[in-house]
Design a protein around this nucleic acid. Structure first.
Lengths: 326, 326
DNA sequence: CCTCTTTGTGTAACCGGTTACATGTATACG
DNA sequence: CGTATACATGTAACCGGTTACACAAAGAGG
């Protein structure tokens, strides 16, 4: 491995001078700089980030914690984060938490041990000691807590929108799927939908789902049509759940959207590819990822941050699991 | 930050002794160990990985390089890698290469600067100097090069399978989509399909596609039906392409699978959710990710590795874009 | 021409661990 | 009982950078 010492030797200067050149700090004579740069070139010297990190007590690493990259909602988020971080030469240590507190805490722990300078986390436990005691900036992605820095979308409004569109399109016996209890955004959108349905005075049903896996979604969908056979509109907890519902509806020979309308949440890439394509409430996940990264960078670089809680608007995407109105 | 020195002070021993306790090396008196362990507990001491890494010149970090996590084929792979690495307390530095050589080299560079102990890469450029000169083990995932460690599936056999199933199901005017030229596995499966069709003596057509993005796949699909309107069987370069083809076929009012059969490649989660669900050649991507991680761990830990080139079998998954035979 | 400031460079401490080596004590064995 | 060996622990060098500080030379100002 080529070290700063090798460069110093070749250039005939001390390591301090080499350090000054590569970091552009302090005074260095133009001629000296030339010699050093030439040596750096010839030896193809790249400073060891670990040594740097040890002395400075900070690295160029960021911890990114997501529930499960295998859930189609998250790759977009991750990609947004990565792209933005890349622009500022930060690297990501990445982990899947499976919504599991212990796994999450373990990850945070090793992030710290590796001197990461910031964390982006899509956690259900933002108010855990581990987070509260962290001495480095954290951005909560897709989750919020007080005025801790966070990037999320307007779940409640999304739920409201879904219910409104459902009503506007004539469903009368709506069923709302309530996502996992410990996942905040799932509850927000659920509340939003409930609000609108309460205001409408129409009857409605609720189905609880325990996770966002496709497998669980399938059983919930079965349960739903079994329990509430007459339902004519389903507000799903997300697009995965909506997909399962759509499948079950088609399997039962129900006409979508004529007999049952379905609205999902997220707008994952899959949604437009289904047949019929899925109407849904869109969250701009790539942009959210980028923005979370952006916010974290600002926090790290101490530039005074105007807005530490960034809420993205959601939007109804009309496709083919809802009827047309005009 | 709690350092080893703090622990040493509290326990009334030297840092060397603390180090011996936490690493379980050398001799330590049982009583001393007790005192140290108690101090470690009370102070909640976690050794700084950066300091460790600097001295040992190796970390517990692994570099993972994938083309694009947003492509639904890769999350499974990534998850497999992560799960296996997690079991052995390795962490991942993750990057998207976008099949871009420069970006890839930059990533490898910073991996090295961070003392990663191994790399898993799904690269198109395995024979670049950057890889050849690496002093740490590399496992090529979904790609091969000579007898460099690699984990991949039998693309050629997959192509053959697709063509055989297509023929067995009665398609006579088959079109094969040739994936991006620089992506090896895409070419392998293409070759496999060509072989079988050549053997069959039936005429066939070829459509070239430039990338695996859905957008490009859509234009290729349009071009395909425009140029070869009479085609009655399409062997797509992957499931994304197959999805685009399926959509275009339905849009044109073609009956799938009666008038056109479609076979994809990969078996991404989306495939079974389409309507009609997509028949495809399955690669066990999660297992491949796990196995790549497993192989890399063996390589890192120097246990003598029996087989450094692990080929996974592929398998035809019969769904609804192909006709039934019996 | 003398003093003050700016420029330029090197020496060595430091970051937080690991480990080679020295040293001392306890135990084993002839 | 003397010596070889196992056990126990501390001191200090080391990993590869960064930077405080010391010092010298050059330029500026009166």
């Amino acid at each position: 491995m080529v070290t700063i010492k090798d460069v110093a030797n070749m250039a005939g200067v001390s390591v301090a001078t080499v350090s000054r050149v590569i970091n552009e700090t302090g005074y260095v004579h133009a001629d000296t700089r030339k010699k050093v740069e030439s040596a750096v070139q010839q030896l193809n010297f790249k400073p060891n980030e670990v040594a740097r990190s040890l002395y400075k007590r900070k690295s160029r690493l960021i911890g990114l914690l997501l529930p499960d990259i295998t859930n189609p909602y998250f790759p977009q988020l991750a990609r947004g984060v990565e792209d933005r971080m890349q622009e500022n030469d930060f690297r990501l240590i990445f982990g899947n938490s499976d919504e599991n507190k212990q796994k999450e805490m373990d990850y945070i722990q090793t992030f710290i041990q590796n001197n990461v300078v910031g964390v982006i986390s899509s956690t259900n436990y933002p108010d855990t000691d581990t987070y509260l005691k962290l001495k480095i900036p954290v951005v909560f992605l897709d989750r919020t807590l007080g005025d801790s820095p966070s990037v999320y979308s307007d779940g409640r409004e999304g739920g409201r929108l879904a219910a409104q569109e459902m009503l506007a399109r004539g469903s009368k016996r709506i069923t709302i799927m309530q996502g996992p209890a410990h996942i905040r955004p799932a509850q927000d959108r659920f509340q939003g939908a409930i609000e609108v349905l309460e205001e409408s005075g129409l009857p409605y049903h609720i189905i609880r789902t325990s996770s966002f896996s496709f497998h669980d979604a399938e059983s919930s969908a079965k349960e739903l049509f079994h329990k509430y056979a007459g339902t004519d509109g389903i507000i799903a907890s997300n697009d995965i759940a909506a997909t399962a519902v759509l499948h079950e509806a088609l399997r039962l020979g129900l006409k979508v959207p004529d007999e049952v309308q379905i609205i999902g949440f997220d707008d994952i890439p899959l949604s437009r590819l289904l047949s019929p394509s899925l109407s849904t409430i869109r969250q701009p996940s790539y942009e959210m990822g980028r923005e979370a990264a952006n916010l974290l960078i600002q926090l790290i670089e101490q530039t005074n941050v105007a807005n530490k809680n960034i809420q993205f608007p959601v939007q109804f995407v009309e496709r083919d699991t809802t009827r047309k109105v005009d």
